[in-house]
Simulated assay, not measured.
Amino acid sequence: MIDEKKYALQAKSIVKYYEDGNTRLDILKGIDLDVAQGEMVAIIGASGSGKSTLLHTLGLLDEPTSGEVLVNGTRTAGLSEKQRSQIRNQSLGFVYQFHHLLPEFSALDNVAMPLIVRRMDRGMARKMAEQVLAKVGLAERVTHKPSQLSGGERQRVALARALVANPVCVLADEPTGNLDRETAQNMFALLKSVNKEFNTAFVIVTHDPKLAELADRQLVMEKGLLDSKTDVPV
């Protein structure tokens, strides 16, 4: 019997479709995916292929029509939204193309927020946030608000926020899509470094083949299905 606890994240026969009257729009058509602990997986594919829908489903932000997601061996089918939210907060991290930082808060307090939501002592939460910000090279920028940071720095704050609760897996949706080439390359290197140092699994949706090449595994999403080939246009 396979020990499912060795996987950070699993998708089992994930199907997602929407119905509008007599019309049915199939988005995911039976996705199976096992992401090992500490593994970095890149998913590439054309716009509209279902990449973001898959990421939202893996992140428990959206429920599949059928199939199931397991997070660190925990089955999530049939859980309440409160239970799903708790798993998201404790086991998953998220990084998006747009950083979604709170503009009125400093980098430090933005990163501490997931721990504060968890009702951790505020002083301890800020101490942990400061440590993670140092890991991503922002030790000197902790008091700055997002408007005082460059695009690359804001993305590093977003990455620190994703990591601060020590998740088993970080889900990243086009994390360099809003950055210039040089800044994106620096972000690539940081993602790989963090992946190794924290032993955190990453699932990265990207249009950028350079980022995909850094991953341990590259998968292509095409017409709602995942394939290991890499010869489709992205």
Rank of each mutant, 00 (worst) to 15 (best):
K145D: 06
Q97Y: 12
V95Y: 04
D180F: 04
I14M: 04
I116L: 15
T76R: 03
Y7Q: 00
G224L: 10
S147V: 11
R24Y: 07
V157A: 13
L79N: 05
G67R: 08
Q90I: 03
Q185L: 12
A36D: 13
A125F: 01
Q218V: 15
L54R: 03
I31L: 09
M128V: 00
I31A: 02
R141V: 03
A212Q: 10
F198I: 02
T57V: 15
D20Q: 09
V157T: 11
L159M: 12
R75I: 04
V69P: 00
L101C: 03
E153Y: 04
L225S: 13
E213L: 11
L219F: 07
K229D: 14
V164D: 04
G21H: 07
G177S: 05
T76V: 01
E140K: 06
A215M: 11
Q218F: 03
A46N: 08
E174T: 00
A107S: 09
T183Y: 00
V136M: 02
R156K: 14
G21S: 04
K223W: 01
P167G: 06
A77E: 15
I31V: 13
E213S: 14
E104N: 05
V168M: 12
G152Q: 11
M120Y: 06
S228K: 12
S47Q: 06
N110F: 00
I87Q: 11
H207L: 08
G152E: 10
A46T: 10
R126Y: 03
R156L: 11
V111R: 00
T53K: 00
R88W: 01
K210G: 05
S13Q: 15
G21Q: 08
R84Y: 03
V234K: 08
K127S: 15
K135N: 14
E63V: 02
E104M: 03
E130T: 04
R181W: 07
P233R: 09
A158C: 09
V142E: 14
E222W: 07
E213Q: 15
V164K: 00
M1K: 11
T176A: 09
L226I: 05
E197W: 03
H144Y: 09
E104S: 10
I87H: 10
P114F: 01
K210W: 04
I31T: 07
D208L: 01
D109G: 02
G123W: 01
E153D: 09
E140M: 04
R217L: 07
T65W: 01
L61Q: 12
G45E: 13
G224Q: 12
K29T: 06
T176P: 06
V15Y: 14
L70V: 01
L92P: 01
V170W: 07
E222R: 13
F188L: 09
L108N: 00
L219T: 09
E81H: 07
V205F: 06
A184D: 09
E81R: 11
G151A: 11
K229H: 14
A212I: 05
